[in-house]
Design a protein around this nucleic acid. Sequence first.
DNA 1: AAGTGGTCTAGACCACGGG
DNA 2: CCGTGGTCTAGACCACTTT
Lengths: 241, 241
Amino acid sequence: MANGNAKETTLHQKILSDIESRIVSGEWQPGFRLPFEVDLAEQYQCSRMTVNKVMTQLAKSGLIERHRKAGSFVSQPRAQSAVLEIHDIETEVKSLGLPYAYALVQRSERQASAEDRRLMDINEATRLVKLLCVHYAGKKPFCVEERRINASAVPEVSDADFATTPPGQWLLRQVPWSTAEHRIQAVGASAEVARSLGVTKGSACLVVERRTWSNLRPITWVRFTYPGDRHTLVARFTPNT
Amino acid sequence: MANGNAKETTLHQKILSDIESRIVSGEWQPGFRLPFEVDLAEQYQCSRMTVNKVMTQLAKSGLIERHRKAGSFVSQPRAQSAVLEIHDIETEVKSLGLPYAYALVQRSERQASAEDRRLMDINEATRLVKLLCVHYAGKKPFCVEERRINASAVPEVSDADFATTPPGQWLLRQVPWSTAEHRIQAVGASAEVARSLGVTKGSACLVVERRTWSNLRPITWVRFTYPGDRHTLVARFTPNT
DNA sequence: AAGTGGTCTAGACCACGGG
DNA sequence: CCGTGGTCTAGACCACTTT
């Protein structure tokens, strides 16, 4: 049907893509009630568990909604949620085929200021390491990184040398798994950023801010500022998966 | 452990969050080999299928990697993938507590130009409807929408009246399920956009471009331009789900 | 009250891949 | 080879929700 050339291996994958294509092709419109699990099991000559696995997956992906006693229904299409891959800057630069370089511009350590507390949701007793770095692609500045690291949560940061290692990579080793929130905006370059990036003041820049927690503790806040004409974020969405 | 106050209901949920918290807390470091399914089933006093469900989910979320004969291992933390919710503009405006309004500025229909083909991956025989619209939050312009719709794939578009209904909502009803690719950039406002948005020319704007396919056919291309100081995209990431 | 999905079990067979 | 995960089954009981 509307299926490219996916190599169907397992039984539940076949059933999944079969039902999926009926939905995305419009054969089963939003609101349509799908056959019950027992009936599908009969149709596909398999056990109910196998069908259930498929239906559970379809429900998780948002393609159908399920209600006990009522049945399973094709969802009304809703707000799209796209997956945004946030890569490491070094990886990003190298995937462009350009040599990567990094420079630490400034470093300080002190108690959290009011501004810090606003950005990071921490109290004033918290110690912070603040960094300003520039990432280069070839000779050109690729982006500016402003970073705050919670030294109370990650005490090793006080001894860390960020002269050669970008703080993002260092943190990834210190705090393996985390939760993050990203904010994406367009802003005009400040005088300082414009100087670091080699662009004119006020020119459009893409700003990605990230706050990171681990075990519910704030770990780091970072703001990446990219020249607007040199960087694009890409996100993809498919009903599958 | 590091778990907030999630109300654990089912057995596999309990096992899942138990293992999850061991990983995110660092008790099980990246590279650590988890107990085998049979052993976990023994530990939790349940069947292997239940453990398998949990482990499969952990693998899908990227927290662990699994290899036959070798076992299951805590993953090395990789590039973060954050989920970006792309909302309908009307919903977005109303969620800010502001009255929503919409205006169609311009409409045309013709064969695809070279520029159109570059943006949409279509051939020159394709007919396109091109629209220019402005979305308002209260009295202020909220964003400008430039849109191209594939009239060969969605012939009903020729009769559609976009004077009162934004094309996004109309399309959602015509083409219920689709694949989309988003590109996010910062650009300086062009003279035309600046006029429509009531900002100064060259001021930073957030641009979200979306290409949409259904059944592998290109359906629509749209570019939303938001004043940079009035709009932020938010994306969240958690190891769960 | 009845029917549906949600969960769980105790098996089973197979394919992959490390030793 | 043979241990591991991947898949599948044919049951079972329960919770929820609509009737």
